[in-house]
């Protein structure tokens, strides 16, 4: 039986990792929610963010968190044409073609990482990535406070953009009925491309946080793609609030599960909980049932 200290530590670290899960899943949720597109290159966009930040810290000694200001827009701008001229033209013709294209992008990026950066495992370091503080006898890593804060701020900001701005209204209109939105003057193709770009930018932010907290390598994206899917499904497809709650819930559940039955069962427990939630609520915690 774990001690109270172990349990509190598990919950706090679970919230921290959950915040990271939520940021990692945000882009997937946006792209799927708006375009019904499964972006198989999402994990590689996360790793791309980590590598670009790694390059910036090596070349100009910039702080990894500050590098977000450069890396996220750069990745977003790189992603824009992929959607605008690669995916949009084939999206109305079924799910297979865009799925294959994102798979191709994923393969290309993985090989590019190996060519440019070698297959070596890398990591980003900063004073705060190893710092900690204590509340009573519980020690809390600063990086987990950062990942939790990043999750809440980023997802809340996205929620505000989607619900309170003109772009958000266009986004929702384009998501619900692209044809009608187009007739009302919404440039759906451009809106899709900007959504994809924003999703890629958020993936890049997740990559920098992953690199600060853990490590990364050319093939590391797959694990975050799978975790992202679990979070999106758990929280409810297309729900920003659900993505945040789903991420935090998955992080805490895995962490507490690992504390009770051992780290070897961490991922298994997370999967079981996702399956249970889907059995009871197939639309996820905050998803809505689509009309017949």
């Amino acid at each position: 039986m774990p001690s109270s200290n172990e349990l509190i530590t598990a919950i706090l670290s679970g919230l921290g990792i959950g915040g990271l899960f939520a940021v990692a899943a945000l882009g997937l949720s946006l792209v799927f929610g708006v375009m019904r597109l499964i972006n198989l290159a999402h994990g590689e966009l996360i790793v791309l963010g980590a590598y670009l930040a790694f390059s910036l810290t090596q070349w100009i000694g910039i702080d990894p968190l500050v590098s977000i200001l450069i890396v996220a827009p750069v990745v977003a701008l790189l992603a824009y044409p992929v959607q605008r001229w690669g995916l949009t033209p084939v999206m109305s013709k079924g799910a297979e073609a865009p799925l294959l294209i994102t798979f191709g992008v994923s393969v290309v990026l993985q090989n590019l990482f190996i060519l440019v950066y070698t297959p070596d495992v890398r990591s980003l370091s900063a004073s705060y990535s190893q710092a900690n503080f204590s509340i009573g006898s519980v020690t809390i890593p600063v990086i987990y406070v950062i990942t939790l804060a990043a999750g809440i701020v980023l997802l809340y900001a996205t929620h505000l953009v989607v619900t309170r701005t003109g772009f958000g209204r266009q986004l929702r209109a384009g998501s619900e009925d692209p044809a009608a939105a187009g007739m009302m003057g919404v440039n759906v193709k451009s809106m899709y491309a900007w959504t994809f770009a924003i999703a890629a930018g958020s993936a890049a932010i997740a990559g920098i946080l992953v690199a600060l907290a853990f490590s990364f390598a050319p093939a590391a994206g797959t694990a975050y793609l799978i975790t992202g899917f679990a979070v999106v499904v758990l929280g409810g497809i297309g729900s920003i609030k659900g993505t945040l709650i789903g991420g935090l819930a998955l992080g805490v559940i895995e962490s507490i599960g690992a504390t009770f039955v051992g780290d070897g069962w961490r991922v298994f427990i997370g999967c079981v909980v996702v399956l249970l939630v889907l059995t009871i609520r197939p639309q996820g915690l905050f998803g809505t049932v689509e009309g017949n």
Partner: peptide
């Protein structure tokens, strides 16, 4: 005495047990 998955990157529960 613990077992952890090979691909795992989050170890705070394990570290907590080590400390305890």
């Amino acid at each position: 005495m613990e077992t952890h998955p090979g691909a795992q990157t989050e170890f705070n529960s394990l570290i907590s047990k080590m400390k305890e």
